[in-house]
Design a protein around this nucleic acid. Structure first.
Lengths: 336, 336
DNA sequence: CGTTAGCACTCTACCTTGATGAGTGCTAAC
DNA sequence: GTTAGCACTCATCAAGGTAGAGTGCTAACG
């Protein structure tokens, strides 16, 4: 599709623009990257590349910048991840220091680390709780009117919900319900708890089915929100170091999206199969993100489920380096 | 200290500048606020006010803007909170709609509402857990190596922590510890749990005192972080609508502070006695906040403790309106 | 004596202008 | 096929020039 020389030129443009954020001209390439052809020849190649849609011109008589398609080609051509630089590697090691215990902390620390390394926004999403399994359901009475329902998952996450005791139901009844649920559903994955049918229970409980169903739904989604699928943002201010965000309006829109958790989750949602995903510019379905790229890696904590780490930056992001960083860190978290 | 006419002039300047964000000149005041004196007279008053430090001039031959001290005088002179406008009141009512249940949701909804009403950053801090009381300590075994410790408070909050079982200790031992703690400390406030002395326990437990102490500390701080003292930010992007933040560098510094939870908590910390507190410009001890004001109201949820709601904006913030808003909403949350 | 009109002065914001330089596209020669 | 040369385009920047808002001062007024 692209002959060798066109590739060389395209890659030079991409690399240079990623580094400098300035449109890159034919002279610059001829001088800085010497592959034995003159500026004029490069100009011809550039004209071709532009016609094919790999690069574009901000205005006549400016240099060229890669288009979304140009970046896409560049990313797809990266066969192998580069090594981490020594600097990056030591920074990461120092940051994670001794232990990797205590989840909440790790997510936040990771987010902060990544954003300071990349000057981009980082998004860390905790492992999904959907695939963990029920260990125990319990109830603790608070007073005559209310009690706490607790759901313990086999990875140690606990969700709790205060319920008002429905009239005519005592804590003893609730306790009985918990016992039954535990007996029936222990070892089942959390997402299957939705199927529970309370109206099948005996006595007053069956009649109060809706009350229980509502409480259970809250418990389950609480569990999902608690740590699992918890969304941690890092360094929304670091991205202001990037020259593209000198333009306020652009940054404002991006920030606005980041404030809505559901949108963030949708952005990060990866293609099912691949361990990495890269969404470049308009490939993101949100219009506000049309000038951003999002690179996401998956991590797995054995027995706890799947989470995601993402870096969001301008399309002019250091794809190879970020991919390496994410690769390294996702493995680090994964084995913790 | 200020005669009546000087007060009138100062207040006119403050109100006008709050509304327009433009330095206000003598002509403007004479025309827009008619208290029967001419522009020239006002100029004389302004010269006095400037010398006294209530207003300042961005540069020669510009209008005047209030200084921190001017705002302070204005705020201190507000005897009575104005009524909420009908618009504000209905927006709030609609937003809180039916129920006020489910804490986490309420905090976030409140933050979002406040920041959209004011075009400022809102900071909502959940009720402190320190004054709640221990209901029950429990342990649930996960597998041979680890278990979940759970601490239930009398307001229904639950903290949990996964612990590796120290060698030589079984779940049964742990269960015993929990039972003892529950028996001894039920009804005590959470912050007194720190005093617990594990080395007094019998057998292998005493020997493992540090393990337990560490776990307990984590539990307690987990409880505090969980909902209590949870910090929720809203609308960091809305503040970009304010003309003062056209200047990126300023906004960047503010945002950076907001990313560090501990700093945010310090900013919001109110004077002990007053239900409201207003920190204007340099009164904030953080240098980055020297051009911002923070208005904080306290709310109390009966039996759950004390929380805070703050609005952070430029010093040119609508003090009376924001105070009314905070007053209204803090009461609303409080009774929920 | 306090208040006011008038006026010269100051300073910013904005526009225009022109010079500079980077970069292109085309053409003709190698 | 490649390259040098050249005319042309366009953004950026500094310089100059104008308009407008606002001040401080002075002198006059009631």
């Amino acid at each position: 599709m692209l002959d060798e020389r066109k590739r060389q030129v395209l890659f030079a443009i991409v690399r240079d623009y990623i580094q400098t954020a300035e449109p890159v001209g034919s002279r610059t390439i001829a001088r800085r990257y010497e592959f034995g052809i003159g500026a004029a020849t490069i100009r011809n190649e550039m004209a071709d590349l532009e016609e094919m849609g790999f690069i574009e011109q901000p205005h006549t008589s400016a240099g060229r910048i890669p288009s979304d398609r140009g970046y896409r080609y560049y990313v797809d051509s990266l066969e192998t991840l580069p090594e981490l630089t020594v600097v990056d590697a030591t920074l990461i090691k120092r940051h994670f220091g001794g232990r990797l215990r205590g989840h909440e902390i790790v997510l936040e620390a990771t987010a902060r680390l990544l954003s300071s390394l990349t000057n981009c926004v980082s998004i860390v999403i905790g492992p999904s709780a959907a695939q963990t399994r029920l260990k125990v359901m319990q109830v603790v009475p608070l007073n005559e009117l209310s009690a706490v329902l607790m759901l313990v998952a086999d990875n140690g996450l606990v969700a709790s919900e205060v319920v008002r005791l429905p009239e005519g139901l005592s804590v003893v009844d609730l306790d009985e319900v918990c016992r039954v649920i535990t007996a029936h559903y222990q070892g089942r994955t959390i997402d299957r708890l939705h199927e529970m049918n309370f109206s099948a229970f005996a006595g007053g409980i069956g009649a109060r089915a809706e009350t229980f169903e509502r409480a259970m739904d809250k418990l389950i989604s609480g569990l999902e929100r608690l740590e699992g699928e918890r969304v941690v943002l890092g360094g929304a201010s670091n991205i202001l170091n990037q020259p593209e965000f000198k333009d306020l309006a652009k940054y404002r829109d991006v920030l606005k999206v980041l404030e809505v958790q559901e949108l963030v989750q949708k952005l990060v949602a990866t293609s099912t199969t691949n361990p990495y995903s890269v969404s470049i510019g308009a490939e993101n379905h949100l219009n506000e993100m049309r000038d951003c790229s999002i690179i996401t890696a998956r991590y797995t904590i054995s027995g706890e489920g799947i989470g995601h780490i993402s870096i969001l930056g301008p399309t002019r992001i250091e794809y190879p380096r970020v991919l390496s960083l994410l690769n390294y860190i996702s493995k680090l978290i994964g084995q913790g």
